Simulated scan of single mutants.
Amino acid sequence: MPLVRPLWAALLDLAAERDCGGCGRPQPSGEPLCPACDGLLAEGGPWRTLAAVPGTPRTHAVARYEDPVRTMLIGYKERGRTDLRRALGRALARAVAQTLDTLPDTALDAVFDTAGAAGCASVALVPMPSRRKAVRDRGQDTTARLARTAARALREVGLPVRAVPALRHARAVEDQAGLSREQRQTNLAGALRARRAAAVATSSVVLVDDISTSGASLAEASRALREAGVPVLGAATIAAARVRS
């Protein structure tokens, strides 16, 4: 009669070696990313993104939306690779920092006082809201969790940053994948509303998302918050389809 291995032994085997969440190479170390793929998030970019849709806030990303970063994001969002969240969240934090660093002096005055980072006014990272179906299918709001991870990373270096889900869907929208720029604008026009606007009214708001393509989602989010009396300083994403060198 064959022996049945204990569950803990099987789990140890899984932890001992896994595939890199980017390039797919085996990782004997058990780390979620190989050094090369991790370096793309930790050392690449950040770049200013190129938006095709008017009204898109100034946005920075740390990587182009192409493999292996595309594979990382798909693995995290669609294939249960929650072990990638820390690396992706820290990459998002780098993009947020770049967005804050490149603000005009007049905008920076609203974020920093003469005491510097120690006297920094509160910064609110507002994640793009996920569709309810996506949250049900994935079992979590992946973008909101990335925002919280990024906020935590920025707090570690002394910036008073928090993640606030201050947007909601006002109506159903289609999945954006495969839609043209014009279709994306139509799909999202008037689709978002501010929620908990009072929670971010005195903060410096940076929109965050995993990917920027045409900029339609970020433009709509900026509009919704602006109409609620909440200005948006800029936006940050992990990857972007189009970037300025």
Results as ranks from 00 to 15, higher is better:
residue 200 V to D: 00
residue 83 D to S: 10
residue 79 R to Q: 14
residue 80 G to A: 06
residue 44 G to V: 00
residue 234 G to I: 03
residue 225 L to K: 10
residue 192 L to T: 10
residue 232 V to H: 10
residue 191 A to W: 05
residue 20 C to I: 02
residue 75 G to E: 05
residue 166 A to K: 10
residue 34 C to E: 04
residue 230 V to A: 12
residue 123 V to D: 11
residue 124 A to D: 08
residue 18 R to M: 00
residue 106 T to F: 05
residue 81 R to V: 01
residue 176 Q to F: 06
residue 127 P to L: 07
residue 65 Y to R: 04
residue 176 Q to E: 13
residue 230 V to E: 08
residue 195 R to F: 00
residue 2 P to Q: 04
residue 86 R to V: 10
residue 128 M to S: 15
residue 62 V to D: 01
residue 148 R to T: 13
residue 164 V to Y: 00
residue 53 V to C: 07
residue 88 L to V: 12
residue 80 G to C: 05
residue 39 G to L: 03
residue 103 L to V: 07
residue 211 I to K: 06
residue 66 E to F: 00
residue 140 Q to G: 02
residue 156 E to P: 00
residue 223 R to N: 04
residue 9 A to S: 12
residue 19 D to H: 08
residue 232 V to P: 06
residue 128 M to G: 15
residue 179 L to Y: 03
residue 36 A to P: 02
residue 119 G to W: 06
residue 41 L to C: 06
residue 53 V to S: 07
residue 119 G to K: 13
residue 215 G to W: 03
residue 177 A to G: 02
residue 164 V to W: 02
residue 24 G to H: 01
residue 1 M to N: 06
residue 115 A to G: 13
residue 178 G to I: 11
residue 10 A to K: 05
residue 57 P to I: 08
residue 166 A to S: 11
residue 131 R to F: 00
residue 86 R to C: 02
residue 88 L to N: 09
residue 132 R to M: 03
residue 136 R to H: 15
residue 53 V to G: 10
residue 93 A to T: 07
residue 140 Q to E: 10
residue 139 G to I: 11
residue 188 L to N: 06
residue 201 A to D: 04
residue 149 T to W: 01
residue 213 T to I: 08
residue 92 L to D: 02
residue 43 E to M: 04
residue 179 L to D: 09
residue 106 T to N: 05
residue 115 A to N: 10
residue 188 L to T: 07
residue 169 H to A: 10
residue 79 R to S: 09
residue 3 L to Y: 11
residue 69 V to R: 07
residue 74 I to D: 09
residue 232 V to D: 08
residue 150 A to F: 09
residue 86 R to T: 12
residue 228 A to L: 06
residue 49 T to D: 01
residue 78 E to Q: 14
residue 6 P to G: 13
residue 131 R to A: 15
residue 141 D to E: 10
residue 139 G to C: 11
